[in-house]
Amino acid sequence: MARLAHHVFFLLKDRRPEAIEALAASCEKYLNGHDGVVDFSVGTRDHELDRPVNLDFDVSLHLVFRDRAAHDAYQTIEQHLSFIAENKESWQQITVCDSNLR
């Protein structure tokens, strides 16, 4: 079984540090510690690394799932859906990248 990486990059409407920290804290509250997650991290953009590729997000979420089934189950759990409902109005754009790990 291949592990599955799920990376989400959030660009916020309100890009003030307080709003960025609030979304990162919400990721930790709702999205960490679920069955099948073998690695979890959330971070904020490093403003000293100002290359053009780093300007299109404020918060990054990184999850590695045991397998595809764990990822699929996570998509429908109450905490994930609550996170989306609570935060989606703050997002200007999100980019999701899923990949099978070797």
Rank of each mutant, 00 (worst) to 15 (best):
R16D: 13
H7W: 11
K29Q: 15
E86S: 02
Q93L: 12
R51Q: 09
Q92F: 05
H47E: 05
T44W: 08
Q79E: 10
G43I: 12
Q92R: 09
D56P: 06
S90A: 15
E48W: 02
A24K: 13
K88C: 12
P52D: 12
T95N: 13
E21F: 05
L63F: 08
L61D: 02
H80G: 07
S41P: 01
A69D: 08
S90N: 09
P17Y: 06
Q93R: 14
F65M: 07
E89R: 12
P52E: 15
E86G: 09
R51V: 03
V42R: 11
H6L: 08
I77Y: 10
F57C: 04
D56Y: 08
L4S: 01
S60A: 15
Y74W: 04
Y74S: 02
A85W: 08
S26I: 00
R45F: 00
S26E: 10
D39I: 04
N32A: 14
L55Y: 00
V59A: 05
E78I: 01
I77R: 08
V64K: 10
A85H: 14
F57S: 07
V37N: 00
A85T: 02
L49R: 02
T76Q: 10
A69G: 05
A5I: 04
T76L: 06
T95V: 14
G43W: 10
K29G: 05
H47Q: 04
V53L: 15
T95Y: 13
L63Y: 01
A73D: 01
H47S: 08
V59Y: 04
H80R: 02
C27S: 12
I20A: 03
M1W: 00
S26R: 04
L49W: 04
F57R: 14
V42L: 11
Y30P: 05
Y30W: 15
D56G: 11
D56A: 12
M1P: 15
L49V: 06
D46C: 09
R16I: 09
C27Q: 13
S60L: 13
L55C: 03
A85F: 02
C27W: 05
S60W: 06
A73Q: 05
V8R: 08
V42I: 13
N87K: 12
F65Q: 09
N87E: 12
I84W: 07
V38W: 05
V53R: 11
L61M: 07
H47R: 06
G36V: 07
D50W: 10
